[in-house]
């Protein structure tokens, strides 16, 4: 049984169809990479999956349960999904350590000592514990992304979503993030990553899902997609990425 199974997902914003019947499955231990041009609805898809956005129609099964219904405990659902944002979204008034402990204290009800131990464990795992007392404004973009990931991992999520984890980073830092994702993959963390960064996609996966015009256009290896595909949209997207390398 897939961990996440999306069936015929539609999302309209005031009449404009952004997602037009998405079908997608994520299995435990998967690293699923979703690519597509800017504005094709990648962020919208991720936000529908944890109900930050209400889908217009379709079903989303999470561990076998349909989570599109009204009686679903949305906040419990969100706690089991780690979300790493493009702009890091660290809480700027909290230190690195407090960014990670906040949810442990307030949502998991841990004691301060327990929460700090758990947070330091995650910060150590990502090699950033030495910055524990700094504020987000005092660390680099790559370091922020590590903290954001540590904050997500601390909640022991079932799956981690990455929304364009590298688009605010330079190539060196992007490489760092790719290494992190590979590290997580080696530790068997289930991940769903949306990106339009072909370089990142290559570094973390050989297969991608290609999203365009609100539907999944293809799911294939990057090599196949890059090699003169019959679909002109796919061709445009992946060949420009190749030239950009």
């Amino acid at each position: 049984m897939p961990l996440i199974s999306v069936h015929n997902l539609v999302k309209e914003f005031s009449g404009q169809r952004v997602l037009n019947g998405i079908n997608l499955e994520v299995y435990e231990g998967d690293l699923k990479v979703v690519m597509g041009p800017s504005g094709c609805g990648k962020s919208t898809l991720l936000r529908c999956l944890n109900r930050l956005i209400e889908p217009t129609s379709g079903t989303i099964h999470f561990r076998g349960q349909d989570i599109t219904g009204a009686d679903v405990d949305i906040r419990a659902l969100r706690q089991s999904i780690g979300f790493v944002f493009q702009q890091f979204a660290l809480y700027r008034h909290l230190s690195v350590l407090d960014n990670v402990t906040l949810a442990l204290l307030k949502l998991r009800g841990m004691s301060k000592a327990e929460a700090e131990e758990k947070a330091l464990h995650e910060l150590n795992r990502l090699g950033i514990a030495t910055h524990r007392d700094k504020y987000p404004s005092q660390i680099s973009g790559g370091q922020k992304q590590r903290v954001a990931l540590a904050r997500a991992l601390a909640m022991d999520p079932v799956v981690i979503f990455f929304d364009e984890p590298t688009s605010a980073l330079d190539p060196v830092m992007s490489r760092e993030v790719a290494d992190l994702i590979n590290q997580m993959r080696a530790e068997n963390v289930t991940m769903l990553c949306v990106t339009h960064d072909l370089r990142l996609a290559r570094q973390i996966s050989d297969r991608v899902v290609f999203l365009d015009e609100g539907v999944v256009k293809a799911e294939d290896t990057i090599d196949h997609l890059c090699n003169a595909h019959s679909d002109s949209k796919i061709n445009d997207f992946f060949s420009s990425g190749v030239r950009g390398q």
Binding site: R75, Q79, F85, Q87, Y91, M155
Partner: peptide, 18 residues
């Protein structure tokens, strides 16, 4: 303020008052 921080908190599972 950058609204993305509040959105991150929502994604973590905090409620509106929190």
């Amino acid at each position: 303020l950058d609204p993305v921080e509040a959105e991150a908190a929502r994604a973590q599972g905090f409620n509106r008052l929190q």
